[in-house]
Design a protein around this nucleic acid. Sequence first.
DNA 1: TAGATACTGGACGCGACGGTATAGGATCAA
DNA 2: TTGATCCTATACCGTCGCGTCCAGTATCTA
Lengths: 215, 215
Amino acid sequence: MPHIPDPPRPGRPKDSTKHAAILAAAKQLFARQPFEQVTMEAVAAQATVSKMTVYSHFHDKETLFEAIVTSVADQMIGILSGSDLRDAPLRERLVAVGRDFLGVILAPGVCEMAHSLPATLRDNRPLALRFYNAGPGRVRRALAAMIAGAAERGDLAVDDPAFAADDLVSLWEGSRPAMIAFGLAEPVLPEEIRQRAERGTDIFLRAYRPDAGEG
Amino acid sequence: MPHIPDPPRPGRPKDSTKHAAILAAAKQLFARQPFEQVTMEAVAAQATVSKMTVYSHFHDKETLFEAIVTSVADQMIGILSGSDLRDAPLRERLVAVGRDFLGVILAPGVCEMAHSLPATLRDNRPLALRFYNAGPGRVRRALAAMIAGAAERGDLAVDDPAFAADDLVSLWEGSRPAMIAFGLAEPVLPEEIRQRAERGTDIFLRAYRPDAGEG
DNA sequence: TAGATACTGGACGCGACGGTATAGGATCAA
DNA sequence: TTGATCCTATACCGTCGCGTCCAGTATCTA
């Protein structure tokens, strides 16, 4: 996404801080309420900006929403593409990916939104796909590759790396995202994220360790 | 919930088939769209009933929604309270519970709704709690008890039965519910439910088998 | 048969919200 | 300074959906 460097137009330029403020306000509101319940007036008020300004930066409510989703997706990519640790032992690599993944998916703002997204995105397949591929999908693909490599080296006894990656992610998450979405649990602390990543990884390794004799 | 047997009132009695039709129509619509997008007119049309009739049976849109949630929750309880199989081997018992659970949670109508519920129920804790306790919560409690029993008998090496139950449910579900909610996958066939229940259970048993030496 | 209630269909009041219009002040480049 | 554009504030329009009212008809009990 190369940011075209403003072809110098006459008149007063747009205030990029307002743009950011609107984006931040919308992100916060969409995280709390589903699409229909977020009013453009509320976004404007939250950003301490006139409603007209909102419409001057984002033509549409849907355009604004898509900008949010895209932004979160990009943020996910940024965080998740860093965690690899080429030559650390397998467990450490998995735990690191798990920590990053949980850090994103359980973040105070993201988690609630992630669970109100489906309802809104069900009739917007392209955007839904993009979001999924930037977050959960990306992690699953990376994990499947790591697992396949470990299997070839004989470090894991795995039938299908994709299934195994799914298992690992599921063990990391547990019921936490659902509970948060239901409003039955508070957002997690970093300490719990670390514990979940380690616990899930250990259980995974125990289930798939080579001497378990599973084809 | 004992159904009070109609204190005989004068005049034409309410048509219970209409009541059921409204409930069914609403269940179908709420499964597809979030709360705000379902119009009472649509419910009436779907039930081939006048809008006024809808309001005569359910005072409110929220009342109707709560009736749906309650109905689904009761249905869950009905299905899930049957699966126990007192003296079958552990694996068979777990697989049976898993099949029932997945059958409910991945059912064509329930799964989509389950993922639009949180957004609607976040400001209705009691109802959210009731739903959770009737479905996922109930299963987790039952599983924790079964797992604790197996651990006492030495059939499993488990630190915390509640965590372990969480792991098992997570392995059963995988990413399927999320994918369906995002509209990126179709509702599942019974065959896949069986496979998931067995696969998840086997992986769980492998991770927690006693000779793995985990405290 | 009479009285009471249920169902239908259409019309409608009302509030909420997305989006537009307008007018006036602010801020930039030339 | 000028002209173009941005931002604000407010008023406004159109629509949509909830919930109600009403007049007419159907159905039940006594």
